[in-house]
Design a protein around this nucleic acid. Structure first.
Lengths: 205, 205, 205, 205
DNA sequence: AATGAATGAGTGTTCATTCAT
DNA sequence: AATGAATGAACACTCATTCAT
């Protein structure tokens, strides 16, 4: 292993499936979907090229499964965080951002692959993934709506604010280095503040 | 042509060079660098496969030239806008954002290719491009520094604010549709407000 | 099932063996020996790929067994018909042709596979099958010889006549449709007349 | 070259095209369409695998071209022979059969491939080839019709006679050996007699 | 500049067959 | 018998690039 982060797909039940999925994630992360070959994946997974096809019927489906796992985990983290947060929009937004940033940092490669390679999915798989991603974004949009209704957020551009916030956080995956200036927690705190400021929240300080 | 936007590379001097560059931009935009073939580029350029190599020595260098043109244009627009703006950080930031958003909208494909395919450049070309991109980001960072010094911006996270702002704007390329809810100008205005809010500017309204 | 005809291999004794043989016949019939895969056969047989090898040691041997069953049945039908016919060459030829045509119509796919795919057998199996086929042809050649000796047939090319007759009948498998212009019986009658005419039989009418 | 017969496709104009077509004919003849690989064809043609695709876009289209050449030549020979023959159906049939047999003997492999591998063509190519083949068979059917009308042929099964005759001749390709009992000319003569006998021609002797 | 022909390495995928259970 | 996992070789086809003209 050459990343400090835990594997995206845990080894529950069918072992090789998880091994292959993690290998695919790594390969797609390193070279992109079209740049990585099934031979690369097989090598990283420690199995033969043809055996891959006993688990996934095509390279494209393999990507789809990788991305599904990543988005499932991201959405679950965000929902859990929001459920555990206070009732006001400000704290809920803060916790949602923290959770999201945490995932981006923990699963940096998955996040990168998720944003860069979705376009190479087959139409059906892409639609499914986009829907899942939208449902994660919806969580943020609902918080924005709540905060605007309650007067906590004063931005006149509420409709697009969630997307703007998430765009910035997604991009973290493309520059974050674990040994950077800010710790994982500081980064999360910073992004939460950016988000609340962007929303023109009252007294975020 | 199937896009309303003007070609990225104008037809000056060596004619076919511009044709090929624009064809490459389109091909890389549609299928990604590794997904598009030199045959695709040749077909879009209306020339033969082998003739491509009379203009560019390799696929990778072709990408490098496409990206260089895109970033040159982006940087020029931003610098011009800042030069034409007022003296205070708030108006300079607003104009810089407007110009940047304008480029993303006008050259959506170029922006997409620029963010998604840089990684496939050869090390030297990539370094050059990153440097160029950083120099554009520097313009924003200087404005942030000016605003913080003057007391216009109160964000405690000034060091990363420029990057956060640009991340959000870059992402526009991945979802913008010319027939969307907001006009080009409204979008620019919205993004400027997001930026100033994120910077916790005084009275940005 | 999507053919009206009875299965070639009856379900006696080891049940799955017959199922597999009939599946193989269907697969080879649809796609040819090299075009059909063992996976195709397994799917049609409703069993697993690897289980095929508990019954037949190789794809080639599977083909050999299919063809053996087909030729056994064909030869048996022809011999029975000749045994049941009158003593003169003319009626024996007529009944032999009728029986042969009957088999081609009843087991059209088996006949097609038998003629088209023999070449893909291993040398030993091929030799065995050719021998069996020759022994069926011998029945016809003996009748021709009898008819020439008795003066019933006046063809000057007796040596090759049996093969010429059978070639025409074999080809029926490649164009026959159950809903065609001629009924099974009419077709048999027609072919019998062609055969006797070709032999320049006296008064075949 | 390892056959005595002249190449099916003559070397006019684009040289490599003819070389590849003849190589493909040989490969398909030896191993069947699905049994022969493009590498086999390339090896026989003395070129590289990938260069094949500069001439033919797919294996299937390569087969289509091979078969088209074969059927063109066959049809041309038959038509020429009929045009040069006398006016009565008997002599026209005799010459048509002679020409057809001549082609089968001269281009034995082409004939074999033509009958055995048509099924592997893409639907459109197959339809085109079947149409071409039918048009050759039509020549025979017209002669049969003429002979029946003129009273030369007395068969009561005129409608299917042409097909029966051609089936027998086609089959020659699967057993003919140049060093066999009958010479090329004798074989043609024999088949002509079979044909006229089958048609129950008056005094074909 | 411009082309068509050529190439060797590589692509995703399927193959017949074997193995462990 | 029966299965799912595994494998190495092969498949048709495409790749970026080069060469001769």
């Amino acid at each position: 292993m050459n990343t400090r982060s835990a594997a995206l797909v845990p080894d529950t039940g069918r072992r090789n499936e998880a091994v292959i999925l993690n290998a695919a994630l790594e390969a797609f992360g390193r070279k992109g979907f079209n740049g990585a070959s099934m031979r690369d994946v097989a090598k990283l997974a420690g199995t033969s090229l043809s055996n891959l096809y006993n688990y996934f019927p095509s390279k494209s489906r393999l990507l789809a499964e990788v991305l599904r796992h990543a988005n499932d985990e991201l959405r679950a983290r965000v929902r859990r965080a929001v459920a555990d947060a206070g009732d006001d929009a400000t704290s809920r937004m803060r916790e949602a951002v923290r959770a999201y940033v945490g995932f981006v940092v923990d699963q940096q490669v998955a996040m990168l692959v998720s944003t860069n390679e979705v376009r190479y999915l087959e139409p059906d798989d892409r639609a499914a993934l986009v829907a899942e991603r939208d449902s994660t974004q919806d969580v943020f949009e609902e918080i924005v709506a709540q905060g605007v209704a309650s007067g906590e957020f004063r931005t006149p551009y509420a409709a697009d604010a969630a997307r703007a916030i998430l765009s910035g956080i997604n991009a973290i995956a493309s520059w974050y280095r674990p040994d950077g200036r800010l710790s994982r927690g500081q980064l999360a705190e910073q992004q939460a503040r950016y988000a609340l400021a962007l929303l023109e929240a009252r007294l975020p300080h």
